[in-house]
Write a protein that binds this DNA or RNA. Sequence first.
DNA 1: TGCTACGACGCAAAATCTTCGGTTCCGAAA
DNA 2: TTTCGGAACCGAAGATTTTGCGTCGTAGCA
Lengths: 155, 155
Amino acid sequence: MSFDSIDRRILELLQDDGRMTNVDLAEKVGLTAPPCLRRVRALEEAGAILGYHAEIDPATLGYPITVFAMVSLRSQAEQDLAAFEQHVATIPEVRECHMLNGEIDFILKIVASDLKGFQDILMTQLTPAPNVASVKTSLTIRTAKSLPGIPIRSA
Amino acid sequence: MSFDSIDRRILELLQDDGRMTNVDLAEKVGLTAPPCLRRVRALEEAGAILGYHAEIDPATLGYPITVFAMVSLRSQAEQDLAAFEQHVATIPEVRECHMLNGEIDFILKIVASDLKGFQDILMTQLTPAPNVASVKTSLTIRTAKSLPGIPIRSA
DNA sequence: TGCTACGACGCAAAATCTTCGGTTCCGAAA
DNA sequence: TTTCGGAACCGAAGATTTTGCGTCGTAGCA
């Protein structure tokens, strides 16, 4: 699978505005609508585009708190790692879970309605979970940069 | 600004599939197309919907490496914090920058094409930046969970 | 109770977009 | 030079988006 400069421009534009009409998109990349649509479908088919999402303001919707939690487990056996992942998958407030190398096994991004809500999750769902050795959390004071996805090199 | 259950359902559906047609959306929330579109526009206007983005597969597009960098600064004076934020804003590979409380001042999500690319950013852009006291990095081994935005309570 | 104003919905129509062939153009290979 | 394959353009049919307008339900008030 290889992407030419038009494909990359399409991806860049859709990453920036995922609801742009195909007509607009076509015009911006210098094609007419039909071939542009075929390229978009092909990119979806190829797995380059995984989906489209509205970006919703967490504060407006009642989630003003974002916390990062650094979790270390007692055992790093694959089945224990997987068990932890399956556990956090069931917690709606945990939006991301990345397995890391080094001392910290996982970093979690957690949203909450208030500090109490966050403490509830931490104390009832995270700290007491099986195999959890330590959980260090940091409140987000402000988010200075938040770009979707990846930079798309126009080369 | 308050959102009723239809608004929340709209947000939930668009967060999940941001390119759904308004006709489909209207049907799913139990409205006809015009009032549904009016609600979407109102949500955009109110700032509840910040934008729409295609989710692009980083690996397919040449960014198989994701790294978290925990940065501590020497000075936490507001102007020094802001200076660091402005600096990372210019680095395309830095996709997110969150200011935290506690020992770590910032957590950065960084993408890279390969380890060398990551090292380049680290050694030339991050570690030597003004006021940076320490940078601890962790490679992402795998991402177990990655949901957009926030949970939307149907209450 | 009865009136009015307001907000939101549904219907219908116009404008726009998506999508499907069919045809043309261009570059590579025989 | 001719042929072939890939990809683009054109035009048209079917959907979707978007606007204008009439109606309904509700809250506030005399």
